[in-house]
Write a protein that binds this DNA or RNA. Sequence first.
DNA 1: AGTCACCTGATT
DNA 2: AATCAGGTGACT
Length: 263
Amino acid sequence: MPELPEVQAVAERLRAAAPWARITGFGQFRPSTMNGGVHAPGRRIESIDRRGKNLILRLSGGWFARVHLKMTGDLRVLPDARLRPQTVRAWFSLDDGRAVVLDDPRALGRISLHPEHEEPELFQDLGPEPFSPEFTPAALYASSRRTARPAKIWLMDQSTVAGLGNIYAAEALFEAGIDPRRPAARLSRRRVERLHAAILRVLETALASVRAAYERPGAFSEGEFYPVAVYGREGQPCRRCGAAVRRIPQGGRSTYYCPKCQK
DNA sequence: AGTCACCTGATT
DNA sequence: AATCAGGTGACT
């Protein structure tokens, strides 16, 4: 599920489960799923942040847990720590009987615990948060000058802007009318400005959709979280011009785009 | 920039 | 049986 909007919604849903009881125990599916779980018991969750696609559970006593959901992870609270679905790969049990669980069918998600002084180095390769004042058209343009890569690959790089993934990178490029294969360094200032605005628009729309889906379960069927223009629509007509949406491999993944609208 | 590895499940 | 999947880190 998770690019920035989905991770943000997970963070918001977790915050609603406060106040938190003390962590009493932890468990994990296999050693690689969680690092340093032993440091959690006895601490309390004090707040929850998001950085790019990472969740940060701030714990008492100067530690935090970093959670990455990867492709299929979800982090949520279960009312009873003993009743865990098979797909729960790691969990913290709480003093009130509840549990915070990493539910991840594909088991790629990871949790690691760190003392707070490690936070800067842990996230040093992440670019600006899209909704922060640091994410300006000028900064995006400057970044585009420093790469030889195609626009889509550059956008998906978490050091360009934090939180865009395969879906919303493709959608932003469509909104901005940019061919995903076009070298980022050859985009005009004007087009990078358009792309900057498109990124914000796409992420805002997606976040509103995901929030709405959370508030009214069943209101959205699968795959309809977001009104996609191109993603997953190979061969179907472009919603703007009617041309067939194309799918090409880029960096080992699928990129979808409209060959007529995106130049 | 491409390929594999990490994992499991759905789909062709 | 083969391919694909909203991610990323370690290779080459």
